[in-house]
Design a binder for these strands. Structure first.
Ligand SMILES: [Mn+2]
Ligand SMILES: [Mn+2]
Ligand SMILES: [Zn+2]
Ligand SMILES: [Zn+2]
Lengths: 167, 167
DNA sequence: CTGCAACTGAGACTGAGTCGCAATCGCATG
DNA sequence: CATGCGATTGCGACTCAGTCTCAGTTGCAG
């Protein structure tokens, strides 16, 4: 399984004169085992839990390679740090993030993508990448959290760790 | 000047039983003096440069209040840390960020905003905030950096600090 | 004037991510 | 098999934005 992306990775390493070591294999396998948004240290504990011996530095170094090769995405989901996710070649998506349960919903809206290009053209800007995410309350959490309560919740949170309400 | 936002801030503090101290005034003034995307430590050195005595902790604490009050925005422009910008009440914008010169261009595209709501509705998601930014090469940097060179540049950068090409 | 909660500065602390380096590996060559 | 050599790894030190603690200060209400 995942031979498609494994090939891309192997070729990427080859082209750079790098080696497909067992450590790099292990990180790859862990990331491509299932689709999720996982942080670097989580990968570390999982691999260690499986009895594999690997260091934190190697995890980070390998993630960098995977991201550069284009088959892994690095996204800011929470306030701090990055999460990594496998990508299917040629596909793209953006994220909805629930402030209550942390759930991550992926979406793709071609009309938004196309309007982005319009905007860039308007400014003579050559787009190379973008990140677009919305934060709020997901379907599962909505019944429990009405609109007014959501605002109140944000209000309350100001005492402790407030959800990242940029803009 | 900026009495509109200053009033909002004052009322915000009042409602919470907090005080409008000289330190908080100073941070407010520095932020609202001109429109830009500035980091916390930059505010510190500027205020110190003006002979004001203020601590880093107070800067951060005040910025948190300003963001909570809704008159200041906190954005991730670079790879690390946040930048702060004054906001005009009721207005909103997103960002284009140049990978070459760091310039930040603000844009607002109502059709994107509206499509965002469509997407959220599709998933039963209640949107509370969003962040949307595109990275690439700005008009000023484009003549010097052709499309192919931009890719090559990204390629080259993989050795050193690569530009944040998420997705 | 007094009391008390809000504030502040200084510096210790946290935690994600990076870096330097010595030991090791994988492989090609003779 | 021995040698050479760049790539790789683990370890731990390090960085740096941001947070926290705490003791001393301020400012207002009673
Ligand atoms: Mn995703
Ligand atoms: Mn802006
Ligand atoms: Zn949820
Ligand atoms: Zn530029």
């Amino acid at each position: 399984m995942r031979t498609r992306e494994r090939d891309i990775f192997r070729k990427y390493l080859e082209r750079r004169g790098l080696k497909l070591t067992t450590e790099r294999q292990a990180v790859f396998d862990e990331l491509f085992a299932r689709h999720e948004h996982v942080e670097a240290d989580e990968i570390l504990v999982r691999l260690r839990g499986k009895g594999k011996k690997i260091s934190r530095a190697t995890i980070y170094r390998t993630l960098e390679l995977l991201v550069d090769s284009g088959i892994v995405g690095r996204v800011r989901i929470g306030e701090i740090g990055y999460r990594y996710e496998r990508l299917r070649a040629g596909e793209h998506h953006d994220h909805l993030i629930c402030n209550e349960c942390g759930r991550v919903i992926e979406f793709f809206e071609p009309r938004i993508e196309s309007l982005q290009d319009d905007v860039c053209e308007r400014y003579g800007f050559l787009p190379l990448s973008h990140s677009h995410q919305m934060r709020g309350i997901c379907r599962q959490c909505r019944p429990r959290t009405s609109v007014v309560e959501a605002v109140a919740s944000a209000e309350r949170a100001k005492a402790g760790r407030r959800p990242h309400l940029v803009h």
